[in-house]
Every structure is written in structure tokens, then in C-alpha cells.
């Protein structure tokens, strides 16, 4: 069930502002037909999540087409114009380079890059985030970007758990329990649910679950008895958290004031635009921020 601002909502009653197409419709239908309740503060928040899920799928396709290669952490490589390759195989954003430029470069100059499947998922999530946030906000949020597996994801507010429903744009994990220990980079494969019965896994491509399992079977140890399988949890970015920094949110919140309080609890009112322009300053110097 979809609940917007405290009221149950049917898909038919939603405005035409929502993205169209079969995948978007599928996302809405799964939410609407679920026993779980999907709460949104406004229709624009629902729209944001749908758009971002579509952007995740689009980014997965873009990575597949980018010619970026699969590599373990020992042999990772990146474009030195935008990234510093660290000793642990991570990519650290070079000082002065906007995160948006560096992220887009991975998808444009893919042949200069090689990385593991978990890092690929973070890259996909960053590109999708860039597609739904104002570039200025993206660069402010992710100014200290560091790509290394799942480890550095703070500003994506990632959630990893068994969900009520699986939705297109979710990231799932195919475990390979009997992987050859000489190639632990194939211990499993993170895959983006493309919404059409296929998954994108970096290094494997876009395949059905059976196709991904078949690929992982090629990397099992001799005498293996346990077949690869799809694990139950799903990984998602914090849609609600990221929505706060989106265009849609700014429109939905237009006309509202933000009240910030300093350490002495002295109140100051600022406009939404002022807040976004000095977001970092408010975040460090003020202890409470309230949307009026």
C-alpha cells in the first residue's frame, strides 16, 4: 500500500508527474499491491524514489556499455586525471575535482578503469544520485568521495536488509559458497535488479538469475557441491535522505522557511536557497535544523 502524507493512495489517483514506462509502473504496482505500507511525505517524494530507481537501472546499463573492466582490489585501475589509486585498490577523488565530473568519467572513459563488483555498485548509485540531485548539491555532499567496495557510503545512507518486497533498482547478492579460493573475487556477485527479470553484475553482464548463477559456477572449486544462489537481503540507497537534497524537494518545500539554532539555541530563519548555498556551514555550526 502507498501512503502519502497519512492517506492511502491508489496508483490511479497519482498525478501525471510520475515517470511513465513499464519499469516505473511495475515499481508503483508492487508498492500499491504490497501488504507493507510505503510511506511518503508527498507525491514528489514518491516520484523521487521512482526516478532514482530508474536512474540506478540506467546507470547499470551505462556501466555495462562503458568498457570498464572487472578487476580484484590488487589490480584496480582508474583515470589518474580525476582519481588517486590508493594502495588498497580504492579510488580517492583528486583535490579540486568535482565529484560529478569524476563519476561521469567512469562511464565515459570506462576503458581506463577496472574494479570489483561491490565498487561497481557504489559507482552506479553515485551516478544515479547525480541524475536526480542538482549537480551543485551532489558535489557538496560527495566532495570527499572515496570508492572502495561498500565501505565508504555514508552520504548515500545505504540500507542492507531483507525487504518486504523486491523492487526494480534493488541491489541483490548472488553468493558463490564453493568459490575457488584462488579467485575469491568471484565469491559472489552484486547485481542490480533491472526490472525485466535480468540483473546487471559487473564482470558478468546483464543476465537472468540463472545466467549469473551459471557464470559463478564456472568459478567454483573442483569438487564443489554447493551451487551459487541469490541471497535474501536487498541493498538500497537512503531515498528519503537523498530526497532532502533534490530539485523535487525544493519545489515541494518552496515557500517554506528553515529554522536553524546555534549552540545557544538562538534561532535564525533562512530561505531554502540560502540553506542549500551554505549547507556545509549550517551542518557544522548549528545543532538543530528545522523545516518550517
Amino acid at each position: 500500500m502507498i501512503n502519502i502524507a497519512g492517506r492511502p493512495v491508489s496508483p490511479e489517483s497519482l498525478s501525471n508527474g510520475l515517470p511513465g514506462g513499464p519499469i516505473a509502473n511495475k515499481i508503483i504496482a508492487i508498492m500499491a499491491n504490497s501488504r507493507a505500507v510505503y510511506y511518503f511525505s508527498s507525491e514528489s517524494e514518491l516520484e523521487f524514489e521512482v526516478r532514482m530507481r530508474l536512474a540506478i537501472i540506467d546507470s547499470a546499463k551505462a556501466l555495462f556499455q562503458s568498457r570498464a573492466q572487472f578487476a580484484d582490489f590488487y589490480t584496480s585501475r582508474c583515470n589518474p586525471a580525476y582519481w588517486d589509486l590508493t594502495e588498497n585498490g580504492g579510488f580517492r577523488l583528486k583535490p579540486g575535482v568535482p565529484a560529478s565530473v569524476a563519476i561521469n568519467d567512469i562511464f565515459v572513459n570506462g576503458e581506463m578503469y577496472a574494479f570489483e563488483c561491490a565498487t561497481a555498485m557504489i559507482m552506479i548509485l553515485y551516478r544515479a544520485t547525480l541524475q536526480v540531485l542538482p549537480e551543485q548539491n551532489f558535489n557538496r555532499l560527495f566532495a570527499n568521495m572515496f570508492l572502495w567496495g561498500w565501505k565508504y557510503d555514508k552520504d548515500l545512507a545505504i540500507v542492507h536488509r531483507i525487504p518486504e518486497d523486491y523492487l526494480p533498482g534493488d541491489i541483490r547478492y548472488f553468493k558463490n559458497p564453493d568459490v575457488n579460493p584462488m579467485t575469491p573475487q568471484w565469491q559472489g556477485e552484486n547485481g542490480v535488479d533491472m526490472g525485466d527479470g535480468t540483473y546487471f553484475g559487473h564482470g558478468i553482464g546483464i543476465k537472468t538469475p540463472e545466467g549469473i548463477i551459471e557464470s559463478l559456477k564456472q568459478r567454483m572449486k573442483p569438487g564443489a557441491t554447493r551451487m551459487p544462489y541469490l541471497m535474501a537481503p536487498a541493498t538500497r540507497p537512503g531515498f528519503k535522505y537523498l530526497y532532502r537534497f533534490s530539485y523535487a524537494n525544493r519545489e515541494a518545500e518552496s515557500g517554506t522557511e528553515i529554522r536553524v539554532f546555534n549552540e545557544e539555541f538562538v534561532e535564525q530563519k533562512v530561505s531554502l536557497d540560502e540553506y542549500f548555498q551554505q549547507m556545509d556551514d549550517y551542518a557544522t555550526r548549528y545543532i538543530t535544523v528545522r523545516f518550517g
Binding site: 570489483e116 563488483c117 561491490a118 567496495g149 561498500w150 565501505k151 557510503d153 545505504i158 542492507h160 547478492y173 553468493k175 559458497p177 565469491q187 559472489g188 552484486n190 541471497m231 537481503p233 541493498t235
Partner: peptide, 10 residues
């Protein structure tokens, strides 16, 4: 249950 740092941050 098979999870590792390949699966999630935690």
C-alpha cells in the same frame, strides 16, 4: 549466513 564485506559495509 555467508555475508562478507563483498555483500555490505556491515
Amino acid at each position: 549466513n555467508g555475508e562478507s564485506l563483498d555483500t555490505a559495509k556491515h
